[in-house]
Design a protein around this nucleic acid. Structure first.
Lengths: 343, 343
DNA sequence: AAAAAAACTTAACGCGCGTCAATATTTAAT
DNA sequence: ATTAAATATTGACGCGCGTTAAGTTTTTTT
């Protein structure tokens, strides 16, 4: 490796003996130059470790190689995991992903979209807050920037949506709970942050009715994204009243269930599918921690891989299509029951 | 709001009636222009919503306003939380933070530093992987880019280190456990990913010896960052052998304890500080989920706020000092015992 | 009110790279 | 070997903004 520091593309062109426009072409797409040239460039690269200035590169390029990834709440390991997945795929495809979290705040979500605009990204993968989102801001953003929504849908907004089929989640859980014991009550937040929660409630009601049972929805108070705490408090309240309609509870999501199980444990209520248990508890999402609840949580899993994979693929199609798809597609993946000890 | 789209600073200068160099000054530091001028610019900004092109801005600036934040494992809510804290502070100070996670991989960590170089950041806040880190790569990076290490120290590398005092963690936990019951055995991974783990073990041994007790370290197998799973498997192994030297266990960190408690529950072993409990378990970190373990986990908390606050402040000093501090400082914050039900 | 200091304007250059037109060279096809 | 097609080179311009120098206006000081 030579000691001389190369400071721009012209210099690198001269030391490598190749013209600057060709070097420029190479960095935009190595396969666009002849193999002999490519190997010469790569040899020179080994020698002199030059890297183009990304700011100058992006300045006039019609499209940067940036991709924005926005999740509503990164402290939730579920989103951290899905973001990781997406990030890796973008890197593999030669893009520069940048990760943002709205941290549950509407204002922050808007600010992120604002920042994202100046990044002039090729595309954005966006999991909105949901109910708390500022629809009009997001709608405007999606008109200007190629955006694929994932996890949580805002109807009609964005070029496409990729997520999990909430009906499938609830069908799996309710049908299992019914055939292995009593039909479940549904445990959720009174004002869910996320549209998925509403879809799950509706699915619960419709499936229960189809099976000939009376739906029973338990709504607990609490705002924001501290779901475990809301589940815990709600469960403490519900369990102390002893007015449960069923000995089987289906929580809208795992994080509520984590709080619920903590409360049940504290109250000395045995949860599980053994005969001596007082309660069965199941939920949805297959949160990374649900293996380690006490008892371990019976839940329904997202197809993580499929969702992140498809989101990224859809965005790439969108980018290649110049920012437009023929029509807004909505892809929902089936869920998978994970049998553990809690129900 | 006017309809005309303004595409560069010169145009904005002409519509606002202020010269371009002054506009440029304003965007670099709004307080650097006279108040009358500032209000006129801001009025024009309301009218025309112009935003400078960040790529052109960063191209020749001696220093960008970018700050890199690198954590070893973002799916761990502990790091997600601390990253959030740091991110907010950087934004408040007018910087552009960008978040990266090494996802436990040495290779990725190196790639991130590589990407970070081309971002030409004003500074970097970096929590290294620890044992898995490529010391020489990081050392070289820190020579080129103003970097403050946090959470996990690599001795002599970076301009400063900010973290928690591992001795303080263990002092709090061991002293509490001793005065409220039996002296604890120490439960940890055989090959810890993180230097903090080694410091905690050493602290444990020294404190036990100081108090006149025989240290007992239980090492369990497992590689990587799936700590809960490692704790679970380790506990299943240890608990089935029934060779525990003490009825009190101190886990190196909360994530191991989360796995441990799941195993104990599964084995029907009662954990807690009531007389009828078979085992007491405590740990360190005050992980966001430790409130919801069964039983809730007695642990020792980081001073999150202080660590993130001080890290950011130190980086700002470093940046203002032109990338050099008089000497490498190491600031360790005290920990705080959190009494819950498990011990 | 005059002088000094501070802040502004005008004009112009440079940064590093994308991109284009005209020309030269290499490769593939006949 | 000749011709056509594909790819490189040369030279030049532009992008949007940072920055500087010289001159002008505004504000502060005395």
């Amino acid at each position: 490796m030579s000691e001389s520091k190369i400071k721009n593309m012209a210099e690198f062109a001269s030391v490598s003996g190749i013209s600057r426009p060709t070097i420029s072409k190479y960095f935009n797409d190595p396969t666009s130059v002849r193999a002999t040239i490519r190997t010469r460039i790569e040899a020179a690269l080994e020698e002199h470790d030059y890297r183009p200035n990304i700011y100058a590169m992006n300045q006039n390029r019609r499209l940067t190689k940036n991709i924005g990834i926005v999740v509503p709440y990164l402290s939730d390991p579920f989103f951290a995991e899905i973001a990781r997945n997406i990030e890796q795929r973008c890197i593999a495809a030669g893009f520069w992903p940048t990760l943002f979290s709205s941290h549950g705040s509407r204002e922050l979500e808007c600010n992120i979209l604002d920042s994202l605009r100046s990044l002039k990204p090729a595309g954005v993968l966006f999991a909105p807050l949901g109910r708390a989102s500022d629809r009009s801001v997001i709608e405007k953003f999606c008109k200007d920037v190629p955006t694929v929504l994932f996890d949580s849908d805002l109807e009609g907004i964005g070029a496409a949506f990729v997520g999990s089929d909430n009906y499938s989640f609830v069908a799996q859980s309710v049908e299992y709970l019914v055939r292995s014991g009593a039909p479940p009550s549904f445990f959720e937040m009174r004002t869910p942050a996320n549209p998925n929660a509403n879809k799950r409630r509706k699915a619960y009601i419709s499936i229960m009715e189809r099976l000939g049972f009376e739906p029973d929805v338990i709504k607990v108070d609490g705002e924001g994204w501290a779901f475990e705490d809301i589940g815990y408090r709600g469960a403490m309240h519900v369990l102390s009243q002893d007015t449960l309609a069923s000995d089987t509870l289906l929580c809208s999501n795992d994080r509520l269930a984590i709080g619920f199980l903590a409360a049940a444990f504290e109250k000395g209520i045995r949860v599980g599918r053994e005969p001596d248990s007082a309660l069965r508890v199941a939920a949805h999402d297959d949160h990374p921690f649900s293996r380690f609840t006490c008892p371990s949580l019976t839940t329904v899993a997202h197809d993580y891989e499929a969702v992140s994979n498809r989101s990224v693929e859809t965005l790439f199609e969108l980018i290649e299509g110049g920012g437009r798809l023929t029509s807004r597609t909505e892809k929902l993946f089936e869920a998978r029951l994970i049998l553990r000890a809690s129900a």
